[in-house]
């Protein structure tokens, strides 16, 4: 049982192992730049929602960075699917689509969690105190699962590499900037609020920030995260089914 799940994880982790250094280095750079520019740049002078800005920023960087990594497997899936047809090997094997999706999702979550650990290291360097409780773990697992299944869905639906880049430019990047990663969304004009509250990242960010900074977790936001996660799991499953044509 779970041959498909284990096989896919074996493949992905083996490939990852070979590129680990480069990948970790690359994924550690941009959050560091944000921390230097906004964290040190603004320093203690700016407070947001009663928190020093850098304390506000770090949970945002955790959601952003882990989203980038978990969702980012779409890029890799694309290459294996279109250029090297490695994906065909999974489709021909006696394994189910559920196993394919869960195998890839586990890999996406692994990458997301790795980048989370990295930002925790930064938070120590920048001496920012965070509270890490069980609710944080539940939230980050849901968050990475949600965005990795979104990534799988899109990687299976797009027709080629170019489409993938378009989705990233027009959906993912705006989402990262608008969903409260760098500033509280409640300050946005009403029109934008509508948009922002349609994006799953908004809820992830709110919930994860609350767990890390000792705020109150809004349970209905967490339930919405679970809803998005379930929805994207289903779309990923369907999308894999469509690849079979």
């Amino acid at each position: 049982m779970f041959n498909g799940f284990r096989g896919i994880l074996y493949r992905e982790l083996n490939v990852f192992r070979k590129r680990a250094k480069k990948q970790i280095l690359a994924s550690s750079l941009s959050p560091l730049l944000f921390l230097i520019a906004f964290g040190w740049g603004f320093g203690d002078r700016v407070a947001v929602n009663g928190l020093p800005y850098i304390t506000f920023l770090i949970p945002g960087l955790i959601t952003m960075s882990s989203l980038n990594q978990s969702y980012g497997i779409a890029q890799e899936l694309n290459i294996t699917r279109f250029y090297f047809h490695v994906f065909d090997e999974y489709l021909i094997a006696p394994i189910s689509h559920v196993e394919i999706v869960l195998g890839e999702a586990a890999y996406g979550m692994f990458k997301g969690l790795l980048s989370t650990v990295l930002i925790f290291v930064y938070s120590v360097i920048f001496s920012v105190k965070l509270i890490v409780g069980p609710m944080f773990f539940i939230a980050i697992l849901t968050h990475t699962f949600l965005f990795t299944t979104l990534g799988i869905t899109i990687a299976m639906l797009v027709k080629d590499h170019g489409d993938q880049a378009t989705v990233n430019t027009f959906v993912i990047t705006p989402m990262i900037f608008l969903s409260g990663t760098f500033f509280p969304v409640d300050k946005l004009p009403a029109v934008f609020k509508w948009l922002v509250y349609a994006l799953p990242l908004t809820y992830s960010t709110k919930v994860i920030r609350a767990t890390l900074t000792g705020g109150d977790v809004n349970m209905s936001y967490f339930l919405l995260m679970l809803g998005f996660a379930a929805a994207f799991f289903v779309t990923a499953l369907r999308a894999v089914g469509r690849v079979e044509g």
């Binding site: 493949r11 083996n14 490939v15 070979k18 294996t80 090297f84 047809h85 490695v86 065909d88 090997e89």
Partner: peptide, 10 residues
Amino acid sequence: PQQSNVDRDL
């Protein structure tokens, strides 16, 4: 298959 779909990264 018609195209050799071995995994180049392995």
